[in-house]
Amino acid sequence: MKKIIIYIFIIVACGYAVREIIYGGLRENKFGIFDKYNTIFLKSNNYETLIIGSSRAESHFNCRIIDSVLNTNSYNIGIQGSSLPFSLDVFSAYLENSKFPRNIIFNIDYHINACDNDTVFMYPRYFPYLSNKTLFKALEKRDKRFLGFRYFPYYSLAFMGDNYFSAAMRGFFNMPGQYDKDYYKGSAPIRDVKWKYKLYYACDEAVMYDRIDSVAAICKRHNANLFLVLSPIYSKASGQILNGSSLIQKLKEKAISNNVVLLDYNSDSLCNDSTLFADPYHMNEKGANLFTKKFSEDLRAIWKK
């Protein structure tokens, strides 16, 4: 009996120790996705311009170009697979340790067809950051298992796999992974190539517009500038969104009512060139650089006014 109690104690202790070693390694990462998450959820930042959104925000807005054209200090907190509400929750989690930015560039995915897809993509990535209370609350709201992930080490380890182990080791040894060097201040080009088209109606629920209202209100309270952006979608794909033009119209009205700028690039010539896209909704590196340049110049013109 005594032996068994000792073994149970050792196993539990080892579970916590191993988990802390892995989390420690991930938090040590100076490159790639974990460096980005460390910045968003753990570090204390003072970026002047912040880019918010999903993977489209992450891949379409190159901070290197934005910084040089606009002479600002920007960071991209676009999160892969994130819904509009989750993007905003990530922004709130960012604010737990960081100062409110002066400019917020909010890339809106109006093309999403399912209103209820507010789930967490690649959720084990967030495990090392559950000490960020805002993030934990946002994750637990979407997935009750996060309570278990936070407090039971073997439960969270079971969902992580060896990719996280090797990323942690890379963190300790300061070695970048295969795609880690793609990241620059949170922005990274997309590499997946999946071309699929289908006719559909995009999500058109009041709650989506209400979120824009609340962000606009928060920005106003902090005296920050909010810029809503509809970054390019390949023209053939945007043509498949049956209610696309009415959605854009509603977003424009929403921008006017909140007295914020909306920059719509969905009828831009960039949208017609398939060589600038990795898939119908994500521009490739070349396309993203062209778009960022164009967007930065447009923004510069607005700032001058």
Partner: peptide, 18 residues
């Protein structure tokens, strides 16, 4: 032996396919 099996146990969670 206990150390070996504890390592195996942790190894299942670290490297196992769930």
């Amino acid at each position: 032996r206990p150390a070996f099996y504890i390592c195996l146990f942790i190894g299942i969670f670290l490297f196992g396919n769930f």
